[in-house]
Design a protein around this nucleic acid. Sequence first.
DNA 1: ACCGTACGTGAACCAATGGGTATATACGCG
DNA 2: CGCGTATATACCCATTGGTTCACGTACGGT
Lengths: 111, 111
Amino acid sequence: MESSFAILAEPNRRAILSLLASAERSVGEMEQRLRMPQTSVSKHLRVLRDNGFVEARVEAQRRVYRLNPKPLQEVDAWLEQFRRFWSRHIDALEKHLDRMDAPGAGKKARK
Amino acid sequence: MESSFAILAEPNRRAILSLLASAERSVGEMEQRLRMPQTSVSKHLRVLRDNGFVEARVEAQRRVYRLNPKPLQEVDAWLEQFRRFWSRHIDALEKHLDRMDAPGAGKKARK
DNA sequence: ACCGTACGTGAACCAATGGGTATATACGCG
DNA sequence: CGCGTATATACCCATTGGTTCACGTACGGT
């Protein structure tokens, strides 16, 4: 049960996730895009997989990885408590957050 | 030049930040609220200070710490690239709520 | 059946870091 | 001035975590 923050503390892992944000990628693809050794990529992927940040599917000899957003959503949720420090000035964002704010509590239409 | 994520990887530091999210606090206050040794609190505060997460003001023998949101905003900004992975769900929820909201005449407050 | 490609994994190595203990500094008070 | 309170820091130690090297495995083409 590592914290998601601990996983994201590693720069190479963040790079991998950023890559996967735009598209699915095979290991070799990440290897050359990020210019890092394959074993390093594989190990980071292992950590990301074990913690639910990515999922893989087998395609011949390749493993194609795709992003799983759930852990990142948790990080986003943790940040919630601090948003009031900067969101006051950004009305559009505030409205967006307000809407996310109603998790089935039944108060859908504020204002 | 440490990544903000590396700073947030530490659970106690996150606890400190959460505390400071609600109010300014002195070191001793955090010490007892978090039930952790003072030297530990001080060390984590040092890291948080050096990385711009908190600022301190001197008040007699006390140091009162307050939150500085900028580094957290950067984290929030990094998450931006992933928001599309769950904003679709939010949109769906939004539409659902809108539909419940306006059963006959369409006043949808979209945008 | 081989051989190269594509990944994963285990072991050894090394640097960074958090916790604990002891100590240093700063301040207010009697 | 000496003492207690409040906080910071230096040092040591144990652990963690990332990198590299070497090897293992699975698959497809020829």
